[in-house]
């Protein structure tokens, strides 16, 4: 068994209105100095030993992320 984290982020060139709204709210809360916020998604998958890296990449590429607008990365956090 292993825990796998898949991070999905809007591509840098894609406008991220949610991140912008968060960034816009920070100064109103008294937090200054944050110049940009990008908002994405984090998935945590518990997988058994039969799931190899190629399969994980396929899950991320074909389902968890939409490669037209999002970048993804997969990492195993527990061996």
């Amino acid at each position: 068994m292993a825990r796998v984290v898949v991070d999905v982020m809007p591509k840098p060139e894609i406008l991220d209105p949610q991140g912008k709204a968060v960034a816009g709210a920070l100064p109103r809360l008294g937090f200054t100095g944050v110049t940009e916020v990008r908002q994405g998604k984090r998935f945590e998958l518990e997988v058994d030993d039969s799931v190899d890296d190629a399969t994980l990449a396929k899950i991320a590429e074909s389902f968890l992320a939409n490669p037209v607008i999002e970048d993804w990365s997969v990492r195993r956090v527990e061996p």
């Binding site: 809007p10 894609i14 406008l15 209105p17 949610q18 709204a21 939409n66 037209v68 607008i69």
Partner: peptide, 17 residues
């Protein structure tokens, strides 16, 4: 249809939310 690849591109959150 975009997600299915029958049409190109994607739809995202409205620019002004």
């Amino acid at each position: 249809l975009c997600e299915a690849g029958l049409l190109p591109g994607a739809l995202v959150r409205n620019a002004k939310l």
